[in-house]
Amino acid sequence: MIFAFDIVILVFLVIAAIISLSVKDLLSASMIFGIYGFLICLLWAEMGAVDVAFTEASVGAGISAVLLVATVYNTKRKSSD
């Protein structure tokens, strides 16, 4: 556990969460949500939870972003907010 690393990742995490919710293009929102997943995967690895980090790297950053993109492709890309 490295505390400076911890703080930096947590701050980026909050920024990524806010941006992915505030951007109007849903494809961008999905991709930034993927970035959020990778950041939180880094955070798990840094806190010593290697199994959780592995799961998050494959699931959170990989599959869930792809599922969101697939849904955006089949519905609408523009969002009102």
Binding site: V50, D51, A53, F54, T55, S58, V59, G62, I63, V66
Partner: peptide, 25 residues
């Protein structure tokens, strides 16, 4: 490898299964 080596390193059925599915995706 991730499925079979989950005893000795990070990994296991959930992670390996998701990676295997990702290869088809």
């Amino acid at each position: 490898y991730v499925i079979a080596h989950g005893h000795h390193s990070p990994g296991g059925g959930f992670q390996g299964g998701v990676i295997l599915a990702a290869s088809f995706i």
